[in-house]
Amino acid sequence: MKIVFITQSGKVFATLNDSKISRDFYSLLPLKIELKDYAVAEKYAKLARPLDIRDEPSTDGKKGDISYFAPWGNFVIYYKNQPFYEGIIRLGRFDGDFNAVINSKNVEIKVVK
C-alpha cells in the first residue's frame, strides 16, 4: 500500500507492509498530523484511535521506518536506529529520502492514500 506525506516542501512517498495493523492505519487516511520530536531520534504524533495490535510482533526501529508505538498509541517515524522495544510495531518504510518529513517542525502535514 502506497502512501504520501504532503509537507510544505513537497511530497514524500512510502510503502506500508501488507499486515493487519498497516491496513488498520491505512483506513485512517487521509490524516492531518503534527509531528513532534522525541529523543532526537524519532518524530511522533498521536492518532485519533488506537490501532489493532493483536498478533503483531514487536521490533526495533530502523532509520526510515514508519511504526506504531503501542504503549502510547503513537504514530512514529524513526530517523535514527532504535533498539528492540516491546510495543514498536513496523507499519512500513519510506521509499527514499524523507528529510522533508523529518524537517517539518511542529507543522501540520497530511498523510494520504
Rank of each mutant, 00 (worst) to 15 (best):
V112M: 02
E34L: 10
R54I: 12
Y68F: 08
V101P: 03
V112G: 01
I89Q: 04
K32N: 15
G96F: 06
K80E: 12
K32C: 03
I66V: 12
E86A: 08
K32T: 15
A45Q: 05
D37I: 10
D37R: 06
K32Q: 15
K105D: 07
L31T: 12
A41E: 14
K46L: 14
S104L: 10
A45K: 02
P83H: 00
A70S: 15
K80T: 13
R93H: 04
I66D: 05
K80R: 15
F69N: 05
I53G: 01
F75T: 08
D52N: 15
R49Y: 04
V111H: 07
K80N: 10
Y79Q: 12
I89L: 03
S67E: 14
F84V: 08
P83Q: 06
A45Y: 02
A41F: 02
A41Y: 02
N103C: 03
L91R: 03
K63S: 14
I66H: 02
K105L: 03
K110N: 09
A48K: 14
E86T: 11
N106D: 15
I33M: 10
A70I: 01
L91C: 05
R54Q: 11
R49I: 12
K105Q: 08
F69T: 05
D37A: 06
V111E: 07
N99G: 05
Y78S: 06
I89C: 04
E34P: 00
D37T: 11
D37P: 01
L35Y: 05
I53Q: 04
P71Q: 14
L51M: 05
K36C: 07
K105G: 00
R49H: 10
F94S: 12
V76Y: 03
Y79L: 11
S67M: 10
L35Q: 07
L31F: 10
D52P: 05
N99S: 15
K43P: 07
I89R: 06
F98H: 07
S58P: 06
W72E: 14
K63Q: 12
K46Q: 14
N103P: 00
E86L: 05
Y85A: 12
F94H: 09
N103V: 01
F75P: 09
Y78F: 15
V76M: 01
R49P: 06
L31M: 14
V101F: 04
P71L: 09
N81T: 05
D95F: 09
P57T: 13
D95S: 09
K46N: 13
Y44T: 13
K62T: 07
P83S: 13
V111G: 09
K105P: 00
E42S: 10
N99Q: 13
I33W: 02
P57G: 03
L91P: 04
Y85M: 11
G92W: 10
Y38V: 11
I89G: 02
I53T: 15
